[in-house]
Amino acid sequence: MGMRVRRALSLMVVVGLTGLLSGAAGGAAPTAEAAVAAAVGLLPASLQGAVAAPAAAPPVRTVVPAPAAPAVLPTTRGQMRAVRVAPVVVPGTPCRSTARACVDLSGNRAWLLDDGEVAYGPVPITSGRAGFRTPPGTFAVTFHSRDHVSSIYDAPMPYSVFFNGGIAFHQGSLSQLSHGCIHLSRTAAREFFGALDRGDLVQVVS
């Protein structure tokens, strides 16, 4: 059977080439698959099954990569600072470099920070009295009110910068404790009012 298959294959090659050349001479050359199929048809029936027709090449699949998800960019200056600056303690303060304002309750001091460095301060402060202690923590500035008046205590709070509910930096007495706010001198209150933006981080340390 092996000798017969080899002879059959030789015959297929001869017939296939003859078909290709004759087709080319006539102006319409048959494909290689058509020539081989014709050659197989000329073989005896007992040998046609022993010769496999060439398998069709699998279709080529083009893989299109999925589009990358859009990057989420920081929107506020406080968020951009948190990305840009490594969170380390700023020398001379108890606060981390991601904060824009730093309050030391036990030391009665406050600073403005910028890119992990002291930009202003320390300045003296007073904070909440007994029963109204200023809570420690990290907060974000929510809004400003240049000529704010307390609706609870009917007291003026010039240059208010709110960062924890009703708690704010504002101009106030440096000899009397507050109801939770951070009192600053007029000069310092104006500096904090002008420097802090909505979303900036305020760190209050006990």
Rank of each mutant, 00 (worst) to 15 (best):
Y120T: 06
G23W: 09
A119P: 05
A29E: 12
V72H: 10
V204C: 04
F143C: 05
A38I: 06
P30M: 02
L184K: 00
M80C: 12
G172W: 06
V202M: 02
V36F: 13
P70W: 10
S10P: 07
L43F: 12
Q171W: 09
V14N: 07
P87L: 03
C95M: 06
A130W: 06
A68Y: 00
D197R: 13
A39Q: 11
P87D: 10
S160R: 00
S46P: 13
S206C: 04
T93M: 03
V72D: 06
A8K: 05
V85E: 11
A53L: 15
D197C: 09
L184T: 10
P124A: 03
L196R: 00
A28I: 06
P67N: 09
P136C: 09
C95W: 09
H144A: 02
V5P: 12
H179G: 07
P91V: 08
V205M: 11
A24Q: 14
L196C: 01
D200K: 00
G2A: 14
L184H: 00
L11R: 15
A69H: 07
A56F: 02
S22R: 11
V63T: 15
P158I: 08
P158L: 07
T138P: 05
L174M: 10
F169S: 11
A69D: 08
L20G: 02
R84S: 15
S151L: 07
V141N: 03
R146F: 05
T93C: 13
A71G: 11
G137E: 07
G19M: 06
D115K: 01
E191P: 02
D200S: 01
R190F: 04
L113R: 09
T62P: 02
G128E: 04
V63F: 15
E33F: 03
L43K: 07
S127V: 14
P65N: 10
S178W: 08
P74Q: 08
